[in-house]
Design a binder for these strands. Structure first.
Length: 577
RNA sequence: CGGUGUUUAGCGCAGCUUGGUAGCGCACUUCGUUUGGGUCGAAGGGGUCGAAGGUUCGAAUCCUUCAACACCGACCA
Protein backbone atom coordinates (compact mmCIF):
# COMPACT_ATOMS: atom_id res chain seq x y z
CA UNK A 1 0.00 0.00 0.00
CA UNK A 2 1.19 3.48 -0.83
CA UNK A 3 0.50 6.23 1.67
CA UNK A 4 -0.42 8.59 -1.15
CA UNK A 5 -3.31 6.27 -2.02
CA UNK A 6 -4.26 5.50 1.56
CA UNK A 7 -5.65 7.39 4.53
CA UNK A 8 -2.93 8.32 6.97
CA UNK A 9 -5.10 10.32 9.33
CA UNK A 10 -2.49 10.97 12.00
CA UNK A 11 -2.89 13.84 14.43
CA UNK A 12 -0.16 15.86 16.08
CA UNK A 13 -2.33 16.95 18.93
CA UNK A 14 -4.29 14.78 21.31
CA UNK A 15 -8.05 15.37 21.13
CA UNK A 16 -9.15 16.74 24.47
CA UNK A 17 -11.80 14.18 25.31
CA UNK A 18 -9.54 11.15 25.04
CA UNK A 19 -8.47 10.13 28.48
CA UNK A 20 -6.71 6.81 28.38
CA UNK A 21 -3.58 6.27 26.32
CA UNK A 22 -5.09 3.70 23.99
CA UNK A 23 -7.93 6.05 23.07
CA UNK A 24 -5.52 8.92 22.48
CA UNK A 25 -3.20 6.83 20.34
CA UNK A 26 -6.01 5.26 18.33
CA UNK A 27 -7.25 8.74 17.46
CA UNK A 28 -3.78 10.11 16.79
CA UNK A 29 -2.69 7.12 14.71
CA UNK A 30 -5.80 7.51 12.56
CA UNK A 31 -7.43 4.21 13.58
CA UNK A 32 -10.80 5.46 14.79
CA UNK A 33 -13.03 8.52 14.81
CA UNK A 34 -15.98 9.15 17.09
CA UNK A 35 -19.36 9.46 15.44
CA UNK A 36 -21.48 9.88 18.60
CA UNK A 37 -21.18 8.88 22.22
CA UNK A 38 -19.89 5.31 22.29
CA UNK A 39 -20.00 4.94 18.49
CA UNK A 40 -16.83 4.81 16.43
CA UNK A 41 -15.91 4.67 12.78
CA UNK A 42 -12.97 2.39 12.06
CA UNK A 43 -10.52 3.88 9.59
CA UNK A 44 -8.58 1.56 7.26
CA UNK A 45 -5.59 1.25 9.59
CA UNK A 46 -7.74 0.48 12.61
CA UNK A 47 -9.86 -1.99 10.71
CA UNK A 48 -6.75 -3.89 9.61
CA UNK A 49 -5.89 -4.46 13.26
CA UNK A 50 -9.43 -5.58 14.06
CA UNK A 51 -9.24 -8.08 11.22
CA UNK A 52 -5.97 -9.46 12.59
CA UNK A 53 -7.55 -10.05 15.97
CA UNK A 54 -10.56 -11.67 14.34
CA UNK A 55 -8.34 -13.95 12.27
CA UNK A 56 -6.47 -15.26 15.30
CA UNK A 57 -9.66 -15.74 17.27
CA UNK A 58 -11.27 -17.53 14.33
CA UNK A 59 -8.30 -19.83 13.84
CA UNK A 60 -8.16 -20.85 17.47
CA UNK A 61 -11.90 -21.32 17.72
CA UNK A 62 -11.91 -23.51 14.63
CA UNK A 63 -8.97 -25.44 16.02
CA UNK A 64 -10.91 -26.00 19.24
CA UNK A 65 -13.77 -27.54 17.31
CA UNK A 66 -16.18 -24.62 17.29
CA UNK A 67 -18.21 -23.90 14.16
CA UNK A 68 -18.72 -20.41 12.79
CA UNK A 69 -22.10 -19.01 11.86
CA UNK A 70 -23.73 -15.58 11.78
CA UNK A 71 -26.89 -14.34 13.49
CA UNK A 72 -28.82 -11.09 13.05
CA UNK A 73 -28.11 -7.97 15.09
CA UNK A 74 -31.81 -7.18 15.23
CA UNK A 75 -33.73 -9.66 17.32
CA UNK A 76 -37.45 -10.08 17.92
CA UNK A 77 -38.69 -9.16 21.39
CA UNK A 78 -40.62 -12.42 21.63
CA UNK A 79 -37.44 -14.38 22.24
CA UNK A 80 -36.36 -12.02 24.97
CA UNK A 81 -39.77 -12.18 26.60
CA UNK A 82 -39.55 -15.96 26.48
CA UNK A 83 -36.19 -16.02 28.24
CA UNK A 84 -37.37 -13.44 30.74
CA UNK A 85 -34.67 -10.96 29.83
CA UNK A 86 -36.97 -8.46 28.12
CA UNK A 87 -37.75 -7.45 31.73
CA UNK A 88 -34.46 -8.40 33.38
CA UNK A 89 -31.92 -6.85 31.07
CA UNK A 90 -32.78 -3.23 31.73
CA UNK A 91 -32.08 -0.12 29.70
CA UNK A 92 -28.81 -1.47 28.32
CA UNK A 93 -30.96 -3.40 25.87
CA UNK A 94 -31.76 -0.97 23.07
CA UNK A 95 -35.35 -1.59 22.08
CA UNK A 96 -36.76 -0.55 18.74
CA UNK A 97 -40.00 -0.94 16.85
CA UNK A 98 -40.44 -1.82 13.22
CA UNK A 99 -43.00 -0.25 10.86
CA UNK A 100 -45.64 -2.70 12.07
CA UNK A 101 -45.01 -1.46 15.59
CA UNK A 102 -43.52 -4.81 16.59
CA UNK A 103 -40.86 -4.83 19.29
CA UNK A 104 -37.27 -5.68 18.53
CA UNK A 105 -33.96 -5.28 20.29
CA UNK A 106 -30.45 -4.68 19.05
CA UNK A 107 -28.55 -7.74 20.21
CA UNK A 108 -26.27 -7.17 23.19
CA UNK A 109 -25.64 -10.93 23.18
CA UNK A 110 -27.18 -13.90 21.42
CA UNK A 111 -28.23 -16.58 23.89
CA UNK A 112 -31.87 -16.27 22.86
CA UNK A 113 -31.24 -16.43 19.13
CA UNK A 114 -28.85 -19.36 19.30
CA UNK A 115 -31.16 -21.24 21.65
CA UNK A 116 -34.05 -20.64 19.29
CA UNK A 117 -31.91 -21.96 16.45
CA UNK A 118 -30.77 -25.04 18.31
CA UNK A 119 -34.16 -26.04 19.64
CA UNK A 120 -35.47 -26.11 16.07
CA UNK A 121 -32.52 -27.72 14.36
CA UNK A 122 -31.00 -30.05 16.92
CA UNK A 123 -33.20 -32.92 17.94
CA UNK A 124 -30.95 -35.82 18.79
CA UNK A 125 -28.29 -36.53 21.37
CA UNK A 126 -26.23 -37.77 18.42
CA UNK A 127 -25.74 -34.18 17.29
CA UNK A 128 -24.18 -33.17 20.60
CA UNK A 129 -22.01 -31.70 21.90
CA UNK A 130 -22.09 -28.67 19.68
CA UNK A 131 -20.13 -25.46 19.89
CA UNK A 132 -21.28 -22.60 17.63
CA UNK A 133 -19.74 -19.17 17.34
CA UNK A 134 -19.92 -15.92 15.44
CA UNK A 135 -17.88 -12.75 15.17
CA UNK A 136 -20.36 -9.97 15.00
CA UNK A 137 -21.48 -6.50 16.00
CA UNK A 138 -23.14 -6.10 19.38
CA UNK A 139 -24.99 -3.14 20.78
CA UNK A 140 -25.22 -2.33 24.46
CA UNK A 141 -26.65 1.01 25.50
CA UNK A 142 -24.00 1.57 28.17
CA UNK A 143 -24.76 3.87 31.09
CA UNK A 144 -21.49 5.60 30.49
CA UNK A 145 -19.50 4.86 27.36
CA UNK A 146 -15.87 5.83 27.82
CA UNK A 147 -12.26 5.16 26.96
CA UNK A 148 -12.92 5.03 23.24
CA UNK A 149 -13.59 1.53 21.96
CA UNK A 150 -12.78 0.07 25.38
CA UNK A 151 -16.33 0.70 26.53
CA UNK A 152 -18.30 1.68 23.48
CA UNK A 153 -21.93 1.01 22.79
CA UNK A 154 -21.42 -0.70 19.45
CA UNK A 155 -18.55 -3.15 19.29
CA UNK A 156 -17.39 -6.40 17.74
CA UNK A 157 -17.55 -9.54 19.80
CA UNK A 158 -16.80 -13.17 19.26
CA UNK A 159 -19.53 -15.10 21.03
CA UNK A 160 -19.73 -18.86 21.20
CA UNK A 161 -22.43 -21.09 22.61
CA UNK A 162 -22.09 -24.75 23.39
CA UNK A 163 -24.81 -27.35 23.90
CA UNK A 164 -24.56 -30.57 25.86
CA UNK A 165 -26.46 -33.51 27.13
CA UNK A 166 -24.94 -33.31 30.58
CA UNK A 167 -22.74 -31.29 32.89
CA UNK A 168 -19.70 -33.50 32.28
CA UNK A 169 -19.80 -32.73 28.57
CA UNK A 170 -20.25 -29.04 29.31
CA UNK A 171 -17.25 -29.10 31.62
CA UNK A 172 -15.20 -30.74 28.90
CA UNK A 173 -15.99 -28.04 26.33
CA UNK A 174 -15.56 -25.36 28.97
CA UNK A 175 -12.05 -26.62 29.62
CA UNK A 176 -11.30 -26.70 25.90
CA UNK A 177 -12.51 -23.11 25.57
CA UNK A 178 -10.46 -22.09 28.59
CA UNK A 179 -7.39 -23.44 26.86
CA UNK A 180 -8.34 -21.93 23.50
CA UNK A 181 -8.68 -18.54 25.18
CA UNK A 182 -5.25 -18.88 26.75
CA UNK A 183 -3.87 -19.72 23.30
CA UNK A 184 -5.61 -16.73 21.71
CA UNK A 185 -4.34 -14.18 24.21
CA UNK A 186 -0.86 -15.67 24.11
CA UNK A 187 -0.78 -15.43 20.32
CA UNK A 188 -2.00 -11.86 20.52
CA UNK A 189 1.06 -11.11 22.61
CA UNK A 190 -0.88 -9.91 25.65
CA UNK A 191 -0.06 -10.14 29.35
CA UNK A 192 -3.29 -11.67 30.63
CA UNK A 193 -4.75 -13.67 33.53
CA UNK A 194 -7.79 -15.92 33.77
CA UNK A 195 -9.73 -15.03 36.92
CA UNK A 196 -12.72 -16.44 38.76
CA UNK A 197 -15.69 -14.23 38.00
CA UNK A 198 -19.24 -13.32 38.77
CA UNK A 199 -21.73 -14.35 36.12
CA UNK A 200 -23.55 -11.01 35.98
CA UNK A 201 -26.71 -10.54 33.96
CA UNK A 202 -26.01 -13.44 31.62
CA UNK A 203 -26.65 -15.79 34.51
CA UNK A 204 -25.40 -19.27 35.21
CA UNK A 205 -22.93 -21.12 37.37
CA UNK A 206 -19.15 -21.37 36.85
CA UNK A 207 -17.35 -18.54 35.13
CA UNK A 208 -13.89 -17.21 34.34
CA UNK A 209 -12.92 -13.83 33.00
CA UNK A 210 -9.75 -13.20 31.02
CA UNK A 211 -8.12 -9.94 31.94
CA UNK A 212 -5.36 -8.00 30.27
CA UNK A 213 -3.38 -6.41 33.08
CA UNK A 214 -3.23 -2.63 32.77
CA UNK A 215 -3.52 0.25 35.19
CA UNK A 216 -6.29 1.78 33.14
CA UNK A 217 -8.42 -1.34 33.58
CA UNK A 218 -11.90 -0.95 35.02
CA UNK A 219 -11.82 -4.09 37.14
CA UNK A 220 -9.90 -4.96 40.27
CA UNK A 221 -8.37 -8.40 40.29
CA UNK A 222 -7.33 -10.09 43.52
CA UNK A 223 -4.33 -12.44 43.32
CA UNK A 224 -2.97 -14.79 45.92
CA UNK A 225 0.70 -14.28 46.66
CA UNK A 226 1.18 -18.01 47.19
CA UNK A 227 -1.03 -19.79 44.66
CA UNK A 228 -2.50 -19.21 41.22
CA UNK A 229 -5.80 -18.13 42.76
CA UNK A 230 -7.06 -15.03 40.94
CA UNK A 231 -10.55 -13.59 41.13
CA UNK A 232 -12.43 -10.50 40.14
CA UNK A 233 -12.84 -8.45 43.29
CA UNK A 234 -16.59 -8.62 42.72
CA UNK A 235 -16.35 -12.31 43.40
CA UNK A 236 -13.36 -12.71 45.73
CA UNK A 237 -14.56 -13.97 49.08
CA UNK A 238 -13.47 -12.03 52.14
CA UNK A 239 -12.46 -14.77 54.52
CA UNK A 240 -14.29 -14.83 57.82
CA UNK A 241 -12.00 -13.64 60.62
CA UNK A 242 -10.85 -16.56 62.76
CA UNK A 243 -10.79 -14.61 66.00
CA UNK A 244 -13.87 -13.59 67.95
CA UNK A 245 -14.62 -10.05 69.01
CA UNK A 246 -12.43 -8.80 71.86
CA UNK A 247 -13.96 -8.45 75.31
CA UNK A 248 -15.50 -5.01 75.73
CA UNK A 249 -13.33 -2.53 77.60
CA UNK A 250 -15.33 0.62 77.05
CA UNK A 251 -18.71 1.86 78.20
CA UNK A 252 -21.27 2.76 75.58
CA UNK A 253 -21.28 6.55 75.36
CA UNK A 254 -23.36 8.96 73.29
CA UNK A 255 -21.22 11.86 72.07
CA UNK A 256 -21.98 15.08 70.20
CA UNK A 257 -20.20 14.96 66.84
CA UNK A 258 -21.60 17.96 64.99
CA UNK A 259 -18.74 18.19 62.51
CA UNK A 260 -18.20 14.51 61.80
CA UNK A 261 -20.29 13.54 58.80
CA UNK A 262 -17.87 11.07 57.27
CA UNK A 263 -15.69 8.28 58.56
CA UNK A 264 -12.60 10.32 57.74
CA UNK A 265 -13.82 13.25 59.84
CA UNK A 266 -14.78 10.96 62.71
CA UNK A 267 -11.36 9.34 62.72
CA UNK A 268 -9.58 12.66 62.62
CA UNK A 269 -11.63 14.57 65.16
CA UNK A 270 -11.97 11.82 67.76
CA UNK A 271 -8.62 10.15 67.30
CA UNK A 272 -10.18 6.76 66.85
CA UNK A 273 -8.69 4.01 64.66
CA UNK A 274 -10.60 3.56 61.43
CA UNK A 275 -10.94 -0.18 62.16
CA UNK A 276 -12.96 0.82 65.22
CA UNK A 277 -15.58 2.56 63.11
CA UNK A 278 -18.36 1.18 60.97
CA UNK A 279 -20.38 2.73 58.23
CA UNK A 280 -24.04 2.17 57.72
CA UNK A 281 -25.41 2.01 54.22
CA UNK A 282 -29.11 2.07 53.57
CA UNK A 283 -30.33 0.13 50.55
CA UNK A 284 -33.69 -0.90 49.14
CA UNK A 285 -35.06 -4.11 50.60
CA UNK A 286 -36.17 -7.09 48.56
CA UNK A 287 -39.80 -8.13 48.23
CA UNK A 288 -38.97 -11.00 50.55
CA UNK A 289 -37.83 -8.60 53.24
CA UNK A 290 -40.92 -6.43 52.85
CA UNK A 291 -43.13 -9.49 53.16
CA UNK A 292 -41.20 -10.76 56.15
CA UNK A 293 -41.17 -7.68 58.35
CA UNK A 294 -42.55 -4.75 56.41
CA UNK A 295 -39.24 -2.92 56.12
CA UNK A 296 -38.72 -1.18 52.78
CA UNK A 297 -35.03 -0.69 53.43
CA UNK A 298 -32.19 -2.57 55.09
CA UNK A 299 -29.02 -1.29 56.73
CA UNK A 300 -25.69 -2.77 55.69
CA UNK A 301 -22.78 -2.42 58.11
CA UNK A 302 -19.16 -2.57 56.99
CA UNK A 303 -16.03 -1.51 58.81
CA UNK A 304 -14.96 2.09 58.22
CA UNK A 305 -11.90 1.05 56.24
CA UNK A 306 -13.82 -1.44 54.09
CA UNK A 307 -15.99 -1.00 51.03
CA UNK A 308 -19.33 -2.54 50.31
CA UNK A 309 -19.30 -5.16 47.57
CA UNK A 310 -22.50 -4.52 45.67
CA UNK A 311 -22.50 -7.84 43.88
CA UNK A 312 -22.34 -9.72 47.15
CA UNK A 313 -24.88 -7.44 48.79
CA UNK A 314 -27.52 -7.76 46.10
CA UNK A 315 -27.39 -11.54 46.37
CA UNK A 316 -28.61 -11.40 49.96
CA UNK A 317 -32.21 -12.48 50.45
CA UNK A 318 -33.25 -9.20 52.11
CA UNK A 319 -31.59 -6.91 49.57
CA UNK A 320 -33.26 -5.79 46.36
CA UNK A 321 -31.58 -6.79 43.14
CA UNK A 322 -30.23 -4.73 41.50
CA UNK A 323 -28.79 -2.93 44.49
CA UNK A 324 -30.29 0.49 45.01
CA UNK A 325 -28.97 3.01 47.51
CA UNK A 326 -31.59 4.94 49.46
CA UNK A 327 -31.95 8.62 48.65
CA UNK A 328 -31.18 11.20 51.32
CA UNK A 329 -34.90 11.95 51.67
CA UNK A 330 -35.76 8.30 52.15
CA UNK A 331 -33.02 7.94 54.73
CA UNK A 332 -34.35 10.88 56.73
CA UNK A 333 -37.84 9.49 56.65
CA UNK A 334 -36.92 5.94 57.63
CA UNK A 335 -34.02 6.53 59.99
CA UNK A 336 -35.17 9.88 61.45
CA UNK A 337 -31.56 10.97 60.95
CA UNK A 338 -29.40 12.18 58.09
CA UNK A 339 -26.57 10.42 56.30
CA UNK A 340 -23.48 10.97 58.41
CA UNK A 341 -25.18 10.06 61.68
CA UNK A 342 -26.47 6.58 60.90
CA UNK A 343 -25.67 3.46 62.85
CA UNK A 344 -26.89 0.04 63.93
CA UNK A 345 -28.11 1.07 67.39
CA UNK A 346 -31.83 1.86 67.55
CA UNK A 347 -32.03 1.07 63.90
CA UNK A 348 -35.67 0.68 62.79
CA UNK A 349 -34.87 -1.59 59.85
CA UNK A 350 -33.10 -4.96 59.52
CA UNK A 351 -29.33 -4.79 59.97
CA UNK A 352 -26.89 -6.97 58.02
CA UNK A 353 -23.33 -6.91 59.28
CA UNK A 354 -20.18 -7.74 57.37
CA UNK A 355 -18.09 -10.53 58.86
CA UNK A 356 -15.20 -8.22 59.66
CA UNK A 357 -17.44 -5.61 61.26
CA UNK A 358 -19.11 -8.35 63.25
CA UNK A 359 -15.93 -9.04 65.22
CA UNK A 360 -15.23 -5.37 65.96
CA UNK A 361 -15.31 -4.29 69.57
CA UNK A 362 -15.45 -0.90 71.29
CA UNK A 363 -16.31 0.64 67.94
CA UNK A 364 -18.12 3.82 67.00
CA UNK A 365 -21.04 4.48 64.71
CA UNK A 366 -23.74 7.07 64.11
CA UNK A 367 -26.49 7.23 66.73
CA UNK A 368 -29.39 7.75 64.32
CA UNK A 369 -29.70 11.24 65.80
CA UNK A 370 -28.28 14.09 63.76
CA UNK A 371 -24.87 15.19 65.00
CA UNK A 372 -24.39 12.32 67.45
CA UNK A 373 -22.33 9.14 67.43
CA UNK A 374 -22.05 6.26 69.88
CA UNK A 375 -18.57 5.21 70.99
CA UNK A 376 -17.59 1.98 72.72
CA UNK A 377 -20.22 -0.11 70.96
CA UNK A 378 -20.02 -3.87 71.43
CA UNK A 379 -22.16 -6.44 69.67
CA UNK A 380 -24.51 -8.51 71.84
CA UNK A 381 -23.85 -6.31 74.89
CA UNK A 382 -25.30 -3.15 73.33
CA UNK A 383 -27.27 -4.52 70.43
CA UNK A 384 -28.06 -7.90 68.94
CA UNK A 385 -25.98 -9.28 66.09
CA UNK A 386 -28.64 -10.79 63.89
CA UNK A 387 -27.50 -11.26 60.32
CA UNK A 388 -23.80 -11.60 59.42
CA UNK A 389 -22.63 -11.95 55.81
CA UNK A 390 -19.68 -11.40 53.51
CA UNK A 391 -20.60 -8.07 51.93
CA UNK A 392 -17.30 -6.23 51.58
CA UNK A 393 -14.58 -6.05 48.96
CA UNK A 394 -11.39 -7.84 49.79
CA UNK A 395 -8.42 -5.55 50.37
CA UNK A 396 -4.68 -6.00 49.94
CA UNK A 397 -3.30 -8.24 52.62
CA UNK A 398 -6.50 -10.20 53.25
CA UNK A 399 -6.06 -13.95 53.62
CA UNK A 400 -6.57 -15.58 50.23
CA UNK A 401 -9.79 -17.59 49.95
CA UNK A 402 -7.75 -20.50 48.62
CA UNK A 403 -6.13 -20.70 52.03
CA UNK A 404 -2.62 -20.01 50.78
CA UNK A 405 -0.99 -16.61 50.96
CA UNK A 406 -2.53 -13.17 51.06
CA UNK A 407 -4.17 -11.10 48.35
CA UNK A 408 -2.69 -8.40 46.17
CA UNK A 409 -4.87 -6.33 43.87
CA UNK A 410 -4.20 -5.22 40.31
CA UNK A 411 -6.24 -3.56 37.60
CA UNK A 412 -7.43 -5.52 34.60
CA UNK A 413 -9.29 -5.02 31.33
CA UNK A 414 -11.83 -7.77 30.76
CA UNK A 415 -11.28 -9.08 27.24
CA UNK A 416 -12.84 -12.52 27.54
CA UNK A 417 -15.46 -14.26 29.64
CA UNK A 418 -16.54 -17.88 29.70
CA UNK A 419 -19.62 -19.19 31.49
CA UNK A 420 -21.29 -22.42 32.28
CA UNK A 421 -24.87 -21.37 31.83
CA UNK A 422 -26.38 -24.67 32.82
CA UNK A 423 -29.98 -24.96 31.63
CA UNK A 424 -31.17 -21.42 32.34
CA UNK A 425 -31.98 -20.59 28.72
CA UNK A 426 -32.65 -24.09 27.52
CA UNK A 427 -35.30 -24.51 30.22
CA UNK A 428 -36.84 -21.08 29.70
CA UNK A 429 -37.00 -21.66 25.97
CA UNK A 430 -37.53 -25.39 26.07
CA UNK A 431 -34.46 -26.48 24.13
CA UNK A 432 -33.86 -30.19 24.35
CA UNK A 433 -33.14 -33.38 22.45
CA UNK A 434 -34.13 -36.99 22.61
CA UNK A 435 -31.64 -39.12 24.51
CA UNK A 436 -30.49 -42.61 23.63
CA UNK A 437 -33.41 -43.97 25.61
CA UNK A 438 -35.84 -41.78 23.72
CA UNK A 439 -36.52 -39.35 26.54
CA UNK A 440 -36.69 -35.61 26.09
CA UNK A 441 -33.86 -33.89 27.86
CA UNK A 442 -33.16 -30.21 28.40
CA UNK A 443 -29.74 -29.09 27.16
CA UNK A 444 -26.84 -27.83 29.21
CA UNK A 445 -25.31 -24.66 27.80
CA UNK A 446 -22.04 -22.83 27.93
CA UNK A 447 -21.20 -19.45 26.48
CA UNK A 448 -17.88 -17.88 25.63
CA UNK A 449 -17.22 -14.26 24.69
CA UNK A 450 -14.25 -12.26 23.50
CA UNK A 451 -14.31 -8.51 22.97
CA UNK A 452 -12.56 -8.18 19.63
CA UNK A 453 -12.50 -4.40 19.41
CA UNK A 454 -11.70 -4.06 23.09
CA UNK A 455 -8.64 -6.24 22.56
CA UNK A 456 -7.31 -3.69 20.09
CA UNK A 457 -7.45 -1.00 22.77
CA UNK A 458 -6.12 -3.33 25.47
CA UNK A 459 -3.15 -4.28 23.30
CA UNK A 460 -2.24 -0.61 22.96
CA UNK A 461 -2.55 -0.06 26.71
CA UNK A 462 0.11 -2.72 27.11
CA UNK A 463 2.29 -1.82 24.14
CA UNK A 464 3.17 1.83 23.66
CA UNK A 465 5.87 4.40 24.33
CA UNK A 466 6.14 8.15 24.05
CA UNK A 467 6.33 7.92 20.25
CA UNK A 468 3.17 5.90 19.84
CA UNK A 469 1.92 2.36 19.47
CA UNK A 470 4.30 -0.61 19.51
CA UNK A 471 2.17 -3.30 17.91
CA UNK A 472 2.83 -6.92 18.68
CA UNK A 473 3.73 -8.41 15.31
CA UNK A 474 0.50 -10.39 15.21
CA UNK A 475 -1.61 -7.22 15.34
CA UNK A 476 0.36 -4.66 13.34
CA UNK A 477 -1.68 -3.10 10.51
CA UNK A 478 1.44 -3.32 8.34
CA UNK A 479 4.55 -5.36 9.00
CA UNK A 480 7.02 -3.13 7.20
CA UNK A 481 7.12 0.58 6.39
CA UNK A 482 9.33 1.81 3.57
CA UNK A 483 10.52 5.30 4.36
CA UNK A 484 12.43 6.89 1.48
CA UNK A 485 14.30 10.12 2.21
CA UNK A 486 13.65 12.89 -0.32
CA UNK A 487 12.38 10.61 -2.98
CA UNK A 488 11.77 13.43 -5.44
CA UNK A 489 15.40 14.49 -5.54
CA UNK A 490 16.90 11.56 -7.34
CA UNK A 491 15.98 8.52 -9.36
CA UNK A 492 18.00 6.20 -7.20
CA UNK A 493 15.82 6.48 -4.11
CA UNK A 494 12.43 5.82 -5.74
CA UNK A 495 13.87 3.01 -7.84
CA UNK A 496 15.31 1.21 -4.84
CA UNK A 497 12.18 1.88 -2.79
CA UNK A 498 9.99 0.48 -5.55
CA UNK A 499 12.19 -2.58 -5.88
CA UNK A 500 12.13 -3.36 -2.17
CA UNK A 501 8.39 -2.66 -2.07
CA UNK A 502 7.76 -5.15 -4.89
CA UNK A 503 9.97 -7.79 -3.35
CA UNK A 504 8.39 -7.56 0.08
CA UNK A 505 4.92 -7.73 -1.41
CA UNK A 506 5.94 -10.73 -3.48
CA UNK A 507 7.09 -12.38 -0.26
CA UNK A 508 3.57 -11.94 1.11
CA UNK A 509 4.51 -9.24 3.58
CA UNK A 510 2.21 -6.30 4.29
CA UNK A 511 4.12 -3.18 3.36
CA UNK A 512 3.30 0.48 3.66
CA UNK A 513 5.31 2.53 1.18
CA UNK A 514 5.48 6.14 2.37
CA UNK A 515 5.66 7.94 -0.96
CA UNK A 516 4.36 11.25 0.36
CA UNK A 517 6.44 14.30 -0.36
CA UNK A 518 7.11 14.88 3.30
CA UNK A 519 10.17 15.64 5.32
CA UNK A 520 11.87 12.64 6.90
CA UNK A 521 10.82 13.61 10.41
CA UNK A 522 7.16 13.61 9.47
CA UNK A 523 7.41 10.13 8.00
CA UNK A 524 9.35 8.73 10.92
CA UNK A 525 6.92 10.14 13.41
CA UNK A 526 3.88 8.87 11.55
CA UNK A 527 5.25 5.37 11.11
CA UNK A 528 6.23 5.19 14.75
CA UNK A 529 2.90 6.59 15.91
CA UNK A 530 1.16 3.89 13.86
CA UNK A 531 3.46 1.34 15.44
CA UNK A 532 4.69 -0.43 12.33
CA UNK A 533 7.20 -3.00 13.61
CA UNK A 534 9.81 -2.75 10.84
CA UNK A 535 11.00 0.35 9.00
CA UNK A 536 13.20 0.33 5.95
CA UNK A 537 14.84 3.74 5.61
CA UNK A 538 16.23 4.49 2.17
CA UNK A 539 18.53 7.48 1.86
CA UNK A 540 21.38 8.81 -0.23
CA UNK A 541 23.62 8.38 2.78
CA UNK A 542 23.90 4.60 2.44
CA UNK A 543 23.11 4.14 -1.20
CA UNK A 544 26.64 4.47 -2.48
CA UNK A 545 27.42 1.25 -0.66
CA UNK A 546 24.13 -0.30 -1.83
CA UNK A 547 22.74 -0.34 1.68
CA UNK A 548 19.53 0.66 3.40
CA UNK A 549 18.73 0.92 7.07
CA UNK A 550 16.36 -1.31 9.02
CA UNK A 551 14.86 0.04 12.20
CA UNK A 552 13.07 -2.10 14.74
CA UNK A 553 10.11 -0.23 16.28
CA UNK A 554 10.19 -2.30 19.42
CA UNK A 555 13.86 -2.21 20.33
CA UNK A 556 14.83 0.91 18.41
CA UNK A 557 17.73 -1.11 17.02
CA UNK A 558 19.11 0.05 13.65
CA UNK A 559 20.82 -2.28 11.18
CA UNK A 560 22.47 -1.50 7.84
CA UNK A 561 21.47 -4.01 5.21
CA UNK A 562 22.55 -4.73 1.67
CA UNK A 563 19.64 -3.90 -0.62
CA UNK A 564 19.24 -7.47 -1.84
CA UNK A 565 19.17 -8.80 1.72
CA UNK A 566 16.22 -6.76 2.91
CA UNK A 567 13.53 -9.32 2.24
CA UNK A 568 15.38 -12.24 3.75
CA UNK A 569 16.27 -10.12 6.78
CA UNK A 570 12.65 -9.17 7.39
CA UNK A 571 11.34 -12.65 6.72
CA UNK A 572 13.82 -13.97 9.22
CA UNK A 573 12.76 -11.42 11.84
CA UNK A 574 9.12 -12.30 11.40
CA UNK A 575 9.50 -16.01 11.70
CA UNK A 576 11.67 -15.69 14.78
CA UNK A 577 8.91 -14.14 16.78
C1' C B 1 -29.67 8.47 37.17
C1' G B 2 -27.36 12.34 40.12
C1' G B 3 -23.04 16.03 40.58
C1' U B 4 -19.50 19.15 38.04
C1' G B 5 -17.79 21.18 33.73
C1' U B 6 -17.41 22.09 28.50
C1' U B 7 -19.47 23.67 23.65
C1' U B 8 -15.97 29.61 19.17
C1' A B 9 -12.64 26.88 11.69
C1' G B 10 -10.94 19.74 10.69
C1' C B 11 -7.85 19.54 15.69
C1' G B 12 -6.01 22.28 20.18
C1' C B 13 -7.44 26.82 22.33
C1' A B 14 -7.99 32.53 23.41
C1' G B 15 -11.84 36.25 23.38
C1' C B 16 -16.93 36.53 27.57
C1' U B 17 -15.44 39.63 33.71
C1' U B 18 -16.55 45.44 31.53
C1' G B 19 -21.75 44.07 24.84
C1' G B 20 -19.30 47.68 19.65
C1' U B 21 -17.06 44.52 12.35
C1' A B 22 -14.41 36.85 15.32
C1' G B 23 -8.75 35.70 16.74
C1' C B 24 -4.12 32.44 17.66
C1' G B 25 -1.33 27.72 16.87
C1' C B 26 -1.63 23.17 14.10
C1' A B 27 -3.89 21.15 9.73
C1' C B 28 -5.49 22.53 4.47
C1' U B 29 -4.41 25.28 -0.75
C1' U B 30 -0.57 27.95 -3.74
C1' C B 31 4.48 29.74 -4.33
C1' G B 32 9.35 29.76 -2.74
C1' U B 33 12.88 27.57 0.74
C1' U B 34 14.70 23.39 3.41
C1' U B 35 15.74 17.96 3.38
C1' G B 36 18.15 11.44 8.02
C1' G B 37 13.65 13.16 13.20
C1' G B 38 7.00 17.04 13.16
C1' U B 39 12.10 23.23 8.31
C1' C B 40 11.41 28.48 7.33
C1' G B 41 8.85 32.45 4.82
C1' A B 42 4.86 34.63 1.99
C1' A B 43 -0.03 34.62 0.16
C1' G B 44 -4.82 32.30 0.65
C1' G B 45 -9.44 29.29 1.77
C1' G B 46 -12.43 27.82 5.72
C1' G B 47 -16.94 30.09 11.24
C1' U B 48 -25.31 30.32 11.33
C1' C B 49 -19.46 31.45 17.99
C1' G B 50 -24.07 24.09 20.16
C1' A B 51 -29.75 25.38 19.31
C1' A B 52 -34.06 28.37 20.27
C1' G B 53 -36.00 32.49 22.60
C1' G B 54 -35.25 37.13 25.34
C1' U B 55 -32.77 42.01 26.93
C1' U B 56 -30.34 45.89 23.85
C1' C B 57 -29.46 50.80 18.86
C1' G B 58 -26.08 46.58 18.88
C1' A B 59 -25.01 39.84 21.75
C1' A B 60 -19.71 34.89 20.96
C1' U B 61 -20.10 38.11 25.42
C1' C B 62 -25.91 39.42 29.62
C1' C B 63 -30.72 36.41 30.82
C1' U B 64 -34.03 31.93 30.03
C1' U B 65 -34.90 27.20 28.05
C1' C B 66 -33.19 23.07 25.46
C1' A B 67 -29.37 19.93 23.43
C1' A B 68 -24.78 17.50 22.71
C1' C B 69 -20.28 16.08 24.86
C1' A B 70 -16.84 15.08 28.81
C1' C B 71 -15.33 14.02 33.77
C1' C B 72 -16.71 12.38 38.78
C1' G B 73 -20.02 9.24 41.59
C1' A B 74 -22.80 5.31 42.15
C1' C B 75 -18.60 4.46 49.11
C1' C B 76 -22.39 9.01 51.42
C1' A B 77 -23.96 7.27 55.89
Amino acid sequence: MRTSQYIIATLKETPSDAEVISHQLMLRAGMIRRLASGLYTWLPTGLKVVRKVEAIVREEMDKAGAIEMLMPVVQPADLWIESGRWQEYGPELLRIKDRQNRDFALGPTHEEVITEFVRKEINSYKQLPLNLYQIQTKFRDEVRPRFGVMRSREFTMKDAYSFHLDQASLQETYDVMYQAYCNIFTRLGLDFRPVIADTGSIGGDASHEFHVLADSGEDDIAFSTESDYAANIEKAEAFAPQEKADTPTQELTLTDTPNAKTIAELVEQFNTPIEKTVKTLIVKASAECVADNGAEYVALIVRGDHELNEIKAEKLAFVAEPLEMATDEAIKEVMKASPGSLGPINCPIPVIVDRAAAVASDFSAGANQDGKHYFGINWERDLPLSQVADIRNVVEGDVSPCGKGTLTIKRGIEVGHIFQLGNKYSTAMNAGVLTESGKHQVLEMGCYGIGITRIVAAAIEQNHDKYGIKWPLALAPFTVAIVPMNMHKSHRIPDIAQKIYDELKAAGIEVLFDDRKERPGVMFNDMELMGIPHQIVIGERNLDTDQVEHKDRNSGEKTLLAIDKVVSFVVNKIKNI
